[in-house]
Design a protein around this nucleic acid. Structure first.
Length: 811
RNA sequence: GCGGAUGUGGUGAAAUUGGUAUACACGCUAGACUUAGGAUCUAGUGCCUACGGUGUGGAGGUUCGAGUCCUCUCAUCCGCACCA
């Protein structure tokens, strides 16, 4: 009988299902491993990226399970989100129906790949039970001030009547209807991630060597800490008068306090209160231009050339008392450092460009060449009163000290990281559990009333928020005073759900009704020993999940600082050198591959073709090759293993080929620990197993075949579980899959070894020699073997590297 | 511009961390068997002017010895991008 993957695979999948083989034990005295892959969005079908992700995590999970660990390897679905609403608009399908149908289909696909997920812990984040606990955390966060409401500028589509995220803009237009997006002030809910910025940055050092350095660098960059001076400019008396005595000063932040004497003007963002006030009063002749500037998104502004408008307002330099003109400029960010900057054109490239364009004065305060542009290097200060001659690095500290002494400014740390806006004007998300009361204001729901669930009877048109338009859903009672009130119609960003799912999986599903995050369960299972997912989540998801962990820790739910101990970011799956995508028509459907070759072939190919961190180029004929190997493995297991009973092999009595075969088998075994526990280079382990099978093929001993197959099937079980279980069951009653196999050192001892002989570092010839030969014997033999290169030459040096080579240096 | 990687046969990739470069696989070539097939098996396969020479993007350096360490350089990919 030949290899029939579909029969074998469905047989074992059913056995595993029936036995609940992948449910972790409740016994907390066992050593545990928590292996987690990023959960999928239920888009409808699995793609190869998913298969790769889960093939990796499954191999690691199965490896540890086989080593006797209590393994948690869960899966779920990141089930809220816009695509469900888009499907509703396009196909008139209810998002809930669409989502659950997709989950059902994808669960079947996951099963057909033989992944060893815990079924009892499978979750969908759109489940009201999940929402319930999430809403509770959000209310707790509100109580401690981590969640707050704020009026900020957002991207607003005037046609679809909704807020859009930055990544939903295409050239400043709505990605769906093409309408020009405008900036609009809106109330929204924010999570104070900036409060945790320092800790999020500091703790990156805990992850060094355990997370890819690239991810650490990206997060570091994203948080963007900078230390400088914060101080305020007073306005001149006339200017204050112009502003109706309402504004008398404004704050700026600088990292270059050393250049403060070089300030020749100040630049304000178009959103700055001074600019707004002037606009309101109609004092600006360039009002139209400034307003259109304010309507541009940050991204658009960054692409536009530098532009500015003189405001006719003057500030007073805090040290020199000189008058400094104020400008409104498009390159000043409203959301950073107070939306105002002191401009030092002599020592800042942007200020130089701006000053040159508008012919503003340039005042040099650090020695250096400013003939062709700003000088941003270091040097001694000039034109800086008492600081003249001081090195600029030193001056920076001294000037900050001076400001603090005079109480006109202070050292300040700023972050590029912005607070996390979690409001979405969407239907298919977790409702933000708050109520608007005329008397009490914004009030959190009573915990007993959770979860606040979505109404099913909604019309989803893509315009506006269906919750807002629902006739009755909004109506509620104020949790505080009991009067009629209005429910919040914003729902939460889907990144909120994926920020705490790693804790939810750890909770015993028997208690899912009673508790959101069980302290003891989390204490046992967390941190995640190995997290696996795509690099595309390097910042957002991984930063949010780290942030949530710290917040939940401070709220007393968990006791760890970092959720993911180790992170593996897998490379993309490519076809014809490009990322697989429907629009390019270069996709490979996992279902088709399973149908044609079986899940084991798909898994083997994916892990063999490339190390997991690298990109994987899909190659149809290489898939055939993987299939061929499995057929061969099946054939040899059924035809060569004639005496399945394992007996102690007397190694010394074996022939050379038999010894070599054993050696190859044990080499593979030796390699496996490093592969599964640290390097994850499954490709090399598979190659070693192939080498072992090749070596076994060159000998005929039944006992060597038996032992070899026993070990190879053991090693490959995490990668090709179905075939491995089937054959192991038939040949060894599955005994080779239940324990760790010890390495026999004897097989590595050789009667003779091959040593290379080099002349002046160049490899010339090999020799066979006893491994116990003395240095003298080795050299003697080598000299005679290599005699033709040594004739008439003078020996300068003789180097012997034991077991490896001899190098003769001659002249 | 800043930050992070990566460069090895026709292709995907190995190399026990300074010690015989190209394991394993794909592809290709030739052959065997054959119910003529995209099956299986055997042999070969870095390049060149082939008893020799040369070869890990390029140029130097350290060393008895470098894919591996150091310096410079080129190319590609990814992330961030007016953060004052």
């Amino acid at each position: 009988m030949s290899y029939n993957p579909s029969q074998i695979e469905s047989k074992w999948q059913d056995i595993w299902d029936k036995n609940g083989s992948f449910e972790p034990s409740d016994d907390k005295s066992l050593s545990k491993k928590y292996i987690l892959s990023m959960f999928p969005f239920p888009s409808g079908r699995l793609h190869m990226g998913h298969v790769r992700n889960y093939a990796i995590s499954d191999s690691i999970a199965r490896y540890y399970r086989k080593q006797g660990f209590n393994v948690l390897h869960p899966i779920g679905f990141d089930a809220f989100g816009m695509p469900a609403e888009n499907a509703a608009i396009k196909h008139n399908l209810h998002p809930k129906k669409w989502t659950y149908e997709n989950i059902e289909y994808m669960s079947k696909e996951l099963k057909s790949l033989g992944f060893s997920f815990s079924k009892n812990r499978e979750l969908a984040t759109c489940d009201p039970l999940y929402t319930k606990w999430e809403q509770e955390f959000i209310i707790k966060m509100y109580e401690v001030g981590v969640l707050f409401r704020e009026l900020t500028t957002v991207n607003w589509c005037p046609h679809d009547l909704t807020v859009l995220a930055n990544e939903q803009l295409e050239d400043g237009c709505c990605w769906r209807c093409g309408t020009q997006v405008v900036q609009r002030q809106m109330q929204g809910y924010y999570l104070d991630i900036v409060k945790y910025a320092d800790e999020l940055l500091e703790d990156l050092s805990l992850l060094e060597g355990k997370w890819p350095s690239q991810v650490l660098a990206m997060q570091n960059n994203w948080i963007g800490k900078s230390i400088g001076l914060n101080f305020s400019f007073s306005l001149s008396d006339e200017s204050i008068k112009q502003l109706d005595d309402e504004i008398k000063s404004f704050d700026v932040f600088t990292t270059r306090a050393d250049t403060i004497y070089g300030v020749t003007y100040c630049a304000l963002a178009p959103e700055h209160p001074i600019v707004k006030k002037l606009l309101k009063k109609g004092l600006l002749k360039d009002a139209k231009e400034i307003e259109s500037m304010a309507n541009m998104t940050e991204r658009e502004r960054s692409q536009a050339p530098k532009e500015g408008y003189k405001l006719g307002i003057e500030a007073i330099h805090p040290l020199t008392g000189e008058k400094v003109p104020l400008w409104c400029a498009n390159f000043v960010l409203a959301s950073y450092g107070g939306g105002a900057v002191m401009s030092v054109p002599a020592h800042d490239e942007r200020d130089w460009e701006f000053a040159t364009k508008y012919q503003l004065p340039i005042k040099q305060v650090i020695e250096g060449d400013i003939s062709n542009g700003a000088y941003i290097g270091s040097g001694k200060l000039i034109n800086s009163d008492e600081f003249n001659g001081v090195d600029n690095v030193e001056a920076k500290a001294k000037i900050i000290a001076l400001f603090e002494e005079k109480s006109i400014g202070s050292a300040k740390t700023n972050f590029k990281l912005r607070n996390w806006g979690v409001s979405r004007q969407r239907y298919w998300g977790a409702p933000i559990p708050f109520v608007h009361c005329d008397d009490c204001g914004v009030v959190p729901e009573k915990i007993d009333n959770l979860p606040i669930t979505l109404p099913d009877d909604v019309q989803i048109t893509g315009e506006g928020n269906p919750l807002e338009k629902h006739p009755t859903w909004k109506e509620c009672k104020c949790p505080k005073c009991g009067k009629d009130a209005i429910r919040e119609t914003d729902t939460m960003d889907t990144f909120v759900q994926s920020s705490w799912y790693q804790f939810r999986y750890a909770v015993n599903p028997k208690n899912w009704e009673n508790v959101g995050i069980d302290k003891e369960d989390v204490k046992y299972w967390l941190g995640v020993d190995q997290y696996i997912g795509g690099i595309e989540h390097a910042i957002l998801h991984l930063l949010y999940a780290r942030f949530f962990t710290k917040v939940l820790r401070d709220l007393g739910y968990v006791q760890i600082d970092e959720p993911f101990e180790r992170l593996l970011t897998q490379g993309m799956v490519l076809k014809d050198g490009a990322k697989m995508s429907k629009s390019k028509g270069n996709t490979v459907d996992p279902d088709e591959i399973i149908k044609k070759y079986g899940a084991d072939t798909a898994r083997l190919f994916i892990l063999f073709a490339s190390p997991p961190q690298k990109e994987l180029e899909w190659n149809d004929s290489a898939v055939e090759g993987s299939f061929r190997f499995l057929k061969r493995l099946y054939d040899r297991a059924t035809s060569k293993v004639t005496q399945p009973r394992l007996e102690k092999i007397e190694h010394s009595k074996l022939s050379k080929d038999e010894k070599y075969a054993r050696q190859k088998v044990y080499e593979a075994l030796k390699k496996s620990t490093d592969v599964f526990e640290s390097s994850f280079s499954f490709n090399t382990l598979i190659a070693s197993c192939m080498e072992a099978l090749n070596a076994l093929d060159k000998q005929e001993s039944g006992e060597v075949w038996s032992e070899g197959m026993y070990i190879i099937l053991h090693l490959l079980e995490p990668i090709i579980p179905h075939l491995s279980h089937e054959l192991s069951d038939r040949l060894f009653a599955g005994k080779n899959l239940t324990h760790k196999i010890e390495i026999i050192e004897e097989v590595f001892i050789k009667e003779s070894i091959t040593m290379a002989i080099s002349i002046n570092g160049k490899h010339r010839i090999n020799m066979e020699i006893s491994p116990t030969a003395s240095k003298e014997v080795i050299l003697e033999t080598a000299r005679s073997v290599a005699s033709r290169w040594l004739e008439n030459m003078t020996m300068v040096k003789e180097i012997v590297v034991p077991n490896k080579l001899v190098n003769f240096v001659i002249r």
